[in-house]
Design a binder for these strands. Structure first.
Lengths: 119, 119
DNA sequence: TCAGGTACTCACCTGAAAGTAAGTACTCCT
DNA sequence: AGGAGTACTTACTTTCAGGTGAGTACCTGA
């Protein structure tokens, strides 16, 4: 599982970007980190209602591998790990913004509910 | 399978947009229709090397259901069906453009191969 | 006459993604 | 003393997207 980096070959840029964002929680993690700057593991877990610890770790590791998030470990007595976006993560988030706007418009169109996430 | 429209609830706009784009070939179908304007079923199949007929039909049906593509059936002797983007499909494609640009940059960064698709 | 093209549908199968639940080692708070 | 919090790991199970291969009904060109 440590192997298998997402490395194409790809049909196009969207394909390459989707490969990195694919995963039930990845775009939400991106959003969460973008909004809060830096978050600890348990903060992310609480910010993403329904995520399992296994999936959160797995997605974070993959995103780290893909150069989207930075993982800072503090060797302290109660363990402390802080996650933040790298510059690639930040630019990916910016690239996702128009898609987010389109999605919000669509939610209005179809009258979709929103999961309330208190930030 | 005819039921189960993609209708949330969603965490955010990206979530709502991803729901509609999720699927191995959907973004490629969007791209293909955007570039050629109107395409017949078999043209799309040939334009997406590796896609199975089952998946192509399934994705096209879902995208029609989601209001992204328009399906025009000509009741002729050799069957003829033309697919094209609706205005929502066009705007989704526009919203995906920055993501595509990011992906191309990423492909350059990691040195990913590109599947050659002769248009 | 028969392969090949049109646009599909149907049934079955597989592999990967995600869920569930438990364990770890250590500390703080009550 | 015991429960909760820190950040995970590991093993097992379930779910489902996608792949495979066949069938359909009709027509055209060699």
């Amino acid at each position: 599982m440590t192997a298998s980096a997402r490395r194409g070959p790809y049909f196009c840029g969207i394909d390459a970007a989707m490969d990195v964002v694919a995963g039930k929680w990845k775009s939400l993690i991106l959003w969460e980190l973008h909004h809060h700057g830096t978050r600890r593991f348990a903060e992310l877990r609480r910010g993403l209602p329904g995520v399992s610890e296994k999936m959160l770790v797995q997605h974070l590791r993959e995103m780290e591998e893909d150069g989207l998030v930075h993982r800072e470990v503090y060797r302290e007595v109660p363990p402390k790990v802080e996650y933040s976006l790298t510059e690639h993560g930040v630019s990916l988030n910016a690239a996702l913004a128009p898609l987010g706007a389109w999605g919000i418009e669509r939610m209005g169109r179809i009258g979709a509910e929103k999961v309330s996430v208190v930030s």
